[in-house]
Write a protein that binds this DNA or RNA. Structure first.
Lengths: 130, 130
DNA sequence: TTGATTGTTCGGCAATCCACGTACAGTCGA
DNA sequence: TCGACTGTACGTGGATTGCCGAACAATCAA
């Protein structure tokens, strides 16, 4: 009743979740990064994630939150003047066992790979460090 | 050398594959369906999949093949006058263990769910038949 | 060589997506 | 009550995407 979040609170039920929506929601660098933040920490609000990601404008993030929310990847519920975010891990695991873990592990590996090649400018083939 | 597939044969190396590209490639109904066909059968050419999917124009499929190819999801190599398609299962499994299986299983479940609700027009909750 | 087949390339068009600034609506602290 | 703060709503511009028809290139069969 309170708050003006008119369109905001549209979360799909567990059975309404569709894998193409989930995949295309996660198939964006910004959103994937946001999901990784949510996976790593406990509860975040919008700005805390926004600051961790470094860049974007608030209204841009609102857009991404909506995509993640409407695809069933995150919960977003108001608390006080903030909007708390969390992964819908249980729902995703129930519908698509192993998917989220595989994605997060893969994203972590990609990030590591990216860092490695960034710190070894000349040799992308680098066997550097261990 | 042969064939005129100028831009065609751009496949990323295994290490070049990025998970966001894979996810956004799979996050489209048409492409996900195409991948499911490739997973089910052996080797297909473009039109065979196109016909199985029922609908689209050839040039549209060419577009989707390119997205799948450039994201590292499929191999596409010319043989005679056809263009044979196959899943890059080994590469994907190597880079993102469990991902492809989770996606395919999820897609299958989604499809089953969709069929169930389609064949039970009145009652989506339907325990109908068996 | 001629014709059929396969699938690409090249535009064009509509729809969607992304990022942004601005305005505004609740909530909280002083 | 008056700001400060959080985050949404809305509109816009630019880029990307999806789908298509038409033309063409390579191969194969006759």
């Amino acid at each position: 009743m309170s708050r003006y979040f008119g369109t905001m609170s549209r979360h799909p039920e567990r059975d309404q979740i569709r894998i193409e929506s989930v995949l295309s929601a996660l198939g964006s660098p910004v959103r994937l990064a946001a999901v990784r933040v949510l996976d790593a920490g406990g509860e975040h609000n919008c700005t805390s994630v926004l600051e961790l990601l470094g860049i974007t404008a608030k209204s841009t993030m609102t857009h991404h939150w909506r995509v993640l929310r409407e695809s069933g990847v995150i919960w977003q519920h108001p608390s006080g003047r903030e909007n708390l975010l969390s992964l819908r891990r249980d729902d995703l695991d129930a519908r698509y066992p192993g998917l989220l873990d595989a994605v997060l592990a893969g994203a972590a590996e990609d990030a590591a790979l990216e860092n490695a090649s960034a710190s070894a400018p000349a040799g992308p083939r680098g066997r550097s460090r261990t």
